[in-house]
């Protein structure tokens, strides 16, 4: 029998994978991929809990997270385009304008 804990462990693993990706990636586009992974892991957790208790709030929240992720991708890609036109590369280390 699959209990809730397994789903939560899966969600945790996926989240950490996403986090590792975010921390390691130097190409901005690949960074966004890793962010998507993190969002999805949260969705899995929500859906699992919601299904386990029969409460629909979790699925609603997952629904909204998907909506937010979509708009985030739109705006983010737009910004990336502008950045690429300006810099010619998508390297993260070139972006250190705010160096203190």
């Amino acid at each position: 029998m699959i209990g809730l804990n397994e789903y939560l462990i899966l969600s945790g693993i996926l989240f950490s994978i996403g986090l590792v990706g975010v921390l390691r990636r130097k190409n901005l586009l690949m960074l966004f991929f890793a962010t998507e992974i993190m969002l999805n892991s949260a969705n899995i957790a929500f859906a699992a809990i919601s299904g386990h208790y029969g409460d629909l709030s979790g699925q609603m929240f997952a629904f909204f997270i998907i909506a937010v992720a979509a708009s985030e991708v739109a705006v983010g890609l737009g910004l990336l385009i502008v950045l690429y036109k300006k810099q010619g590369t998508l390297d993260l280390d070139n972006l250190a304008v705010m160096k203190g």
């Binding site: 990636r25 705010m98 160096k99 203190g100």
Partner: peptide
């Protein structure tokens, strides 16, 4: 700490 590097901040 303020290197301006996003990866660093993350």
């Amino acid at each position: 700490m303020q290197s301006g590097n996003l990866s660093h901040y993350l």
